[in-house]
């Protein structure tokens, strides 16, 4: 694997391998010395053109646990805000010897361009590009689903037979797109729930079942329901009449949460808007995986960084 740009590029075998490797990485967190020497002498650059403290910290922590040298570059207040292009910034960082570049960018396709425009040679890891994809988020979601569902018997397994509903702003969600391709590649049954205004054009052709009413989806025996964040700027762009109406129609209210099966996981990529897409009753319950997702994120990012930057196909020592 040279780059990780989209979960569309991952087949079942590769995805399972990443999840298994992430499980190995998770075990190192239980050791006295949490660091692995796998990326000693390698340089990982975190190139963030969009503010995202949690994702950035997760990648930094993953790279450091693999003993990589980590350079973090935030666009704000840098040469980028003075008009430097993506190309020049990337070439500057590549010239400093980056082996892998983790990129977060507000424009769809930015990671793809870094990987394929011929500007640089480094491995590129997409940490979220516009409204396109966020592959490590989907991998950590798959990991969380697998770990909760199969527990100690997770290794080597895919998600065949699991039923997952993803609810909310599919149109603007890179998390939803990455999850659709990954979860279906792993054999899960995916249901998408959104008002028409927040469904991407042509979504009916995706390998999913589409619902317009949350209660229709919740009446199925779901293994997990994943609530997507509603960004405040959408509320002023006529996608739906008001936050109150959205919460009533598509929010995981306390009443809806109470109707879920006893084993249905409640997932959210964070940060949450409590009272809008998710109620506190759901967010704080034992069925919520929100904090597991954060923890698993570090393991997944360690696994992917290892595969991209270690330059070998072997397993870590």
């Amino acid at each position: 694997m040279k780059h990780l740009l989209s979960t569309r590029d991952l087949d079942r075998a590769t995805a399972v391998r990443i999840l298994d490797l992430a499980e190995d990485m998770a075990h190192t967190a239980d050791r006295e010395v949490k660091k692995l020497p796998a990326l000693r002498g390698r340089t990982v650059v975190n190139l963030f053109f969009e503010d995202s403290t949690r994702t950035r910290l997760s990648f930094e922590s993953a790279a450091k646990r693999l003993s990589a040298d980590v350079i973090t570059f935030s666009a704000k207040g840098s040469s980028v805000s003075k008009g430097e292009s993506l190309k020049d910034t990337a070439q500057t960082l590549a010239a400093m010897g980056a082996d892998a570049i983790v990129v977060r960018h507000p424009d769809s396709g930015a990671a793809h361009q870094l990987a394929h425009a011929g500007w640089i040679d480094a491995a590129v890891l997409n940490a979220g590009d516009g409204t396109h994809e966020h592959p490590t988020q989907a991998l950590l979601d798959a990991y969380t689903l697998r770990a909760r569902h199969f527990g100690a018997h997770s290794r080597g397994r895919d998600l065949a037979g699991l039923r997952v509903a993803i609810v909310g702003d599919i149109l603007h969600s890179r998390v939803a797109r990455s999850n659709v391709w990954l979860l279906t590649a792993l054999g899960a049954e995916v249901h998408l729930v959104a008002p028409r205004t927040l469904q991407p054009h042509g979504m009916q052709s995706w390998p999913v079942t589409v619902h317009e009413h949350l209660d229709d989806a919740l009446s199925l025996a779901l293994d997990a329901v994943m609530m997507l964040r509603i960004q405040t700027e959408r509320m002023h762009a006529a996608f739906f009449p008001s936050a109150r109406e959205y919460a009533r129609e598509w929010g995981l209210t306390a009443e809806r949460f109470a109707r879920l099966g006893p084993d249905t996981m409640v997932m959210h990529p964070g940060p949450m808007n409590r009272g809008l897409e998710i109620s506190s009753a759901a967010a704080d319950s034992s069925r919520s995986t929100v904090l597991d997702q954060v923890t698993n994120g570090v393991s997944i990012r360690m696994a992917v960084l290892y595969l991209l930057a270690a330059g070998s196909s072997g397993e870590p020592a």
């Binding site: 769809s108 396709g109 590009d129 516009g130 409204t131 396109h132 994809e133 149109l171 890179r174 797109r177 991407p200 054009h201 042509g202 979504m203 052709s205 995706w206």
Partner: peptide
């Protein structure tokens, strides 16, 4: 950004 279609939805480019 591009023609609105199933492809724009997939690529995350505004249609």
């Amino acid at each position: 950004q591009m023609n609105e279609s199933a492809l724009s939805g997939e690529l995350g480019l505004t249609g």
